[in-house]
Computed example of a mutant assay.
Amino acid sequence: MDTVSPLERVLRGLAITVVILFFMFPIVWIFLMSFQTNETILRVPPSVVFEPTLTNYTALITGKLETAAGTLEIAFMRNLWNSLFLSTASVAVGLLLGVPAAYAFGRLKFRGSEDIAFTLLSFRFAPPLLVLLPLTIYFQKIGLADTYVGLIWVYQLIVLPLILWIVRGYFEDIPADIEYAYRIAGHSWFSTFRKIALPLAGPGIAAAGLLAFIFAWNNFIFALVLASADKQPVTVGALAFVTASGIQYGQVAAGIVLSIAPTFALALYAQRYLVEGLSLGAVKG
């Protein structure tokens, strides 16, 4: 049995502490900035000692941003709701379409299956600007421009390939003999898929859904071009903080805190599924 020396434990603890501080420092600094005014933020040298204020959060919640040029109306909370709705709906549609497709690609080998799967994956690799112009013209002609349905449809370019390829690996890891034994007992294909395959791949589906939600939440370019102000997510709505009188750093920091809160809370809630799912997906054979 290997023993760890006290010196090694101390060095390991110091290394872990340094890594945590390195990655957490920007988040902590942004959090502190959200309780400061622009004057406090821009002072030289910077200091962690300041008088906290809630004016930044009040401005975001009330929709009234005070600038040197006067009061500016913003719709940050609506943008936050748009992000939540678009990301949730996009992931729901992506799971509804992607999970059965992933099962088909993982279990059924048919002519051209790998080519089709790779083509779907290539949509994830393609630069968004490559499809924005034709999509804009196409959506204007069919009436989907500046609509939630149109945005959810476009978000499938982000969500669907990710779900398809991640979940496919989990279905391939499930021994096919389990499903064959259930089918021999007289159960239908759909019953086997619903009662055997889906529960066994549950952690992988949860992990894929969480990652897809984060990617959809962070999208910027699609909503910037294809949506008006009342349907834009928080990533685009944050541009309102860049005003003619300057950048409102306090409101930007408060907006970042509020915008990452849903994904952070979701990650904490689903971390067991995420770790378990990614761990299972990493073991092949």
Rank of each mutant, 00 (worst) to 15 (best):
T3Y: 08
T3A: 05
S5P: 11
P6H: 08
P6G: 01
T17Q: 14
V18K: 04
V19A: 15
P26Q: 11
V28Q: 09
L32M: 12
S34P: 03
T37L: 09
N38W: 06
I41L: 11
R43M: 10
R43T: 11
R43A: 13
P45M: 11
S47Q: 10
V48P: 10
P52I: 12
L54C: 07
Y57C: 05
Y57E: 03
T58R: 14
T67C: 02
A69V: 05
A69T: 12
T71F: 00
L72S: 08
R78I: 10
N79P: 04
L80H: 04
L80W: 03
L80M: 14
L84H: 09
F85Q: 07
A89G: 09
S90Y: 00
S90E: 00
V91Y: 05
V93S: 03
G94K: 03
L95R: 03
L96C: 09
G98K: 01
V99L: 07
P100R: 09
F110I: 03
R111V: 13
D115I: 15
I116F: 14
L120W: 08
L121V: 05
S122Y: 01
F125I: 13
A126T: 13
A126K: 01
P127M: 07
P128I: 08
V131H: 08
P134L: 10
L135M: 12
I137R: 12
Y138L: 15
F139A: 05
F139V: 07
Q140D: 08
Q140N: 13
G143M: 12
L151A: 02
I152S: 00
W153R: 02
W153Q: 10
Y155S: 04
Q156M: 05
L160R: 02
L160E: 05
P161A: 06
I163C: 02
I163A: 04
V167F: 04
Y170E: 09
F171I: 09
E172Y: 08
D173T: 13
I174Q: 05
I174F: 04
E179R: 01
E179H: 07
H187Y: 01
H187F: 08
W189T: 08
F190W: 12
F190A: 11
T192A: 15
R194C: 02
R194H: 04
K195D: 11
I196H: 02
A197E: 14
L198M: 08
L198D: 05
L200T: 12
P203H: 01
A207I: 00
L210G: 06
L210C: 02
L211C: 01
I214D: 03
F215C: 00
N218Y: 07
N218L: 09
I221H: 08
I221W: 02
F222Y: 11
L224C: 07
L226V: 10
S228C: 01
Q232Y: 06
P233C: 06
P233N: 08
T235W: 04
A240E: 06
V242R: 13
V242M: 08
V242Q: 15
V242K: 12
T243E: 05
G246L: 10
I247T: 15
I247G: 12
Y249S: 12
G250P: 10
G250H: 03
Q251I: 03
Q251E: 11
A253I: 00
A253S: 06
I256G: 06
I256E: 00
P262M: 06
T263D: 06
R272I: 04
L274Y: 15
L274A: 11
G277C: 02
G277P: 00
G285L: 03
